[in-house]
Computed example of a mutant assay.
Amino acid sequence: MKCAIITGGSRGIGRAICLKLAEEKNYHILINYTSNEAAASETLEKVKALGSTGEILKFDVGNAEETKNILTEWQETHPNAIVEVIVNNAGITRDGLFMWMSTEDWNSVINTSLNGFYNVTNFFIQKLLRNKYGRVINMVSVSGVKGTAGQTNYSAAKGALVAATKALAQEVAKRNITVNAVAPGFIKTDMTQDFNEDELKAMIPANRFGEAEEVADLVAFLASKKSSYITGEIININGGIYS
């Protein structure tokens, strides 16, 4: 059984990625979530409605012990399963000016985006190397590429993930494993629902927010065999807001 794991897969861009990969029917979809079980179950139902298979895995990617325990347990109950695609999508924001930023707001954001990448990818990486095939896709952000005021913590976490993507790509390329990052700009999701779209779209050359499905299309391409000569890349998907 070939599998794709999508962290933070219950809603928004994560859900769109689960559904896009389900549509292609190449993989059993592992939907990771932390707290919203109803949303995760709904995503799973949609995956099945598309004629694919899947399951939900509850763990906090930022919690190293919990991540290892749940993934080990899953692996032991599915000895023949091979995870070929890892989409590190889980992320949180705790926005605010740096001078008033609490230690907790700094650590929680770094922990989910950056340590979450380590905890999940490191668990599977030796198996990918033995299998001589894999696709690692890290969801970063325009904030991690150009920096965004009021998001020093989020920009730091995503910027570090950009550098990690480039480094890991060089380590594993010989084994037919690609590692790329996708950097969305303003995409219509729960995370951006409080943003003033009319005000912000004036600074976007495409003059609109992106759709989660548009991001999912790009991720699905990077998860496919068609993208085998692309690695170590950070692909911006932002309507021209930053290039």
Rank of each mutant, 00 (worst) to 15 (best):
V182K: 03
D194Q: 13
V109P: 06
T72G: 00
A38S: 14
N238E: 08
Y27I: 12
T178C: 06
A64F: 02
G62Q: 05
S143W: 01
S108Q: 15
D190R: 10
A173G: 09
A160H: 05
R94F: 02
E84W: 01
E213M: 07
T103V: 08
G8N: 07
S141Y: 00
E233K: 09
A220S: 15
N207S: 15
V85H: 02
L218F: 07
N107T: 14
K68I: 01
Q151D: 02
Y27Q: 10
L114C: 11
P205D: 13
G232T: 05
I82C: 06
A216D: 05
S10Y: 02
T7N: 05
Y154W: 10
L200G: 04
Y133G: 14
M139P: 01
A183K: 12
I234W: 00
A183E: 12
F124A: 05
K146G: 13
R135P: 04
A163Q: 12
K166L: 08
E84G: 00
Y27E: 07
L168W: 03
N119K: 07
L97P: 00
D198F: 09
T43R: 00
T121N: 05
A169N: 10
G240T: 11
R11P: 00
V85F: 01
S143D: 11
A160W: 04
S243T: 14
R94T: 10
G150P: 10
Q126M: 12
V83C: 12
F186Q: 07
G134Y: 02
A206F: 04
V61Y: 06
M139V: 11
N122V: 05
E23I: 09
R208M: 12
K48S: 11
R130S: 13
E233R: 03
I241N: 09
K127W: 01
F221W: 06
N107S: 10
E23Q: 15
K58V: 07
T121M: 04
A167Y: 06
T7P: 02
Y118N: 04
G54I: 03
L97T: 10
E76M: 04
P205Y: 01
K2P: 06
V162N: 09
T165K: 04
V182W: 01
D105P: 08
G159A: 09
T148Y: 00
N180G: 09
E37R: 15
E37W: 11
I82F: 09
G116D: 07
K48Y: 00
N88F: 06
K20T: 13
A212I: 07
T7I: 02
A223D: 10
D60H: 11
P79L: 08
S224Q: 04
N26R: 15
A202N: 15
V61C: 07
L200Q: 11
N138I: 10
S155H: 05
E213N: 14
N138T: 08
I86P: 01
